[in-house]
């Protein structure tokens, strides 16, 4: 009796010594769900990717040597996808940070403004692609306007190619970056700004030397999330670009192989997609780890 009680106490202190206070167990429901519906499928897919034509890494080799039965240029799609996702995430960020910073205290009509900016997010990529096809097409309103103003002499080709997909990605990605940045910018204690202003810093100085450094962790998260969003581009590449060539993206290749029953090739493409994305994100989060991370509330000092 006494020994088992002592053992139990030992076990209890062993668990507590590793930081497992009762509060920690609050993560359990989330973790269980993720193990069953995320970890297990990922491992299953990984296993599948090594069952290509002749086993082992043959599916991967086929990808890099463009030997998939339904995709003649699979390797090129890797660069196409990166060339779309990186610039669009960067453009979104460069647009979102100053605007969110300016709106962080709220100006008149900020609610209406935010609601309007968020429209593309509610519209989704399929709607935006459909709309841009008409708006930016050869007979669309933009080309009509530019022709009317004599700025151009023949219609600009903005759809059915790379430019169209990039425009669509920026349009759908911007609200996402904007809303996240607004949340982070609003979390900065106004008294820090006020203190800087008392010490003689103008708005520009305050932005570069107070708010931007405090925002950097938020900025890296925002960049990472909007890159991920753009990297998975699928509907707009098909509807607004030309997925037979110039805007054929990785997810299109994976889907094509999947719908033709080549599950190993589809899985291998999905894994390559994941690795490429993880490399980009690793760089971003390596930078984030070096930045200040903590309370954005002003202290007493």
């Amino acid at each position: 009796m006494t020994t088992s009680a002592a053992e139990r106490r030992d076990l209890g202190s062993w668990i507590r010594a590793r930081g497992y206070t009762p509060t920690v167990w609050l993560v359990l429901p989330g973790v269980l769900f993720m193990v069953v519906f995320f970890i297990y499928p990922v491992i299953y897919g990984l296993n599948l990717s090594f069952q290509g034509r002749s086993g082992g890494i043959s599916a991967y080799l086929d990808f890099f040597t463009n030997q998939f039965p339904h995709d003649s240029g699979s390797f090129q799609t890797l660069w196409t996808t990166l060339a779309l996702a990186l610039p669009s995430a960067l453009i979104c960020l460069v647009l979102a940070v100053p605007i969110a910073w300016r709106l962080r205290r709220g100006v008149r009509g900020v609610r209406v403004l935010t609601a309007i900016v968020m429209i593309p997010m509610t519209l989704g990529s399929v709607f935006v692609a459909e709309a841009l096809n008409t708006l930016l097409g050869p007979a669309g309103w933009l080309n009509r306007l530019l022709l009317m103003l004599n700025l151009i002499h023949e219609p600009l080709r903005l759809t059915g190619n790379f430019t169209g997909v990039l425009i669509a990605l920026v349009l759908t990605g911007f609200p996402f970056s904007f809303l996240l940045m607004l949340g982070f910018a609003a979390g900065i204690d106004p008294s820090l700004d006020r203190a800087a202003s008392i010490l003689g810093a103008g708005p520009t100085q305050r932005f570069w030397r107070i708010d931007l450094p405090l925002l950097l962790p938020g900025i890296t998260i925002t960049f990472a999330l909007s890159f991920v969003l753009a990297f998975a581009v699928f509907p707009s590449a098909t509807l607004l670009g030309n997925d037979a060539g110039p805007t054929r993206v990785l997810s299109k290749v994976a889907y094509q192989e999947y719908s033709n029953g080549n599950y190993a090739n589809a899985s291998a493409t999905a894994v390559i997609m994941a690795v490429a994305q993880l490399i980009v994100l690793a760089i971003v989060f390596l930078i984030r780890g070096r930045l200040y991370r903590g309370s954005t509330a002003g202290g007493k000092g």
Binding site: V42, G45, L48, A232, Y258, Y263, S267, T269, A270
Partner: peptide
Amino acid sequence: IPTFTYAIP
């Protein structure tokens, strides 16, 4: 990781 990586399995 991209949606497709876990969506198919």
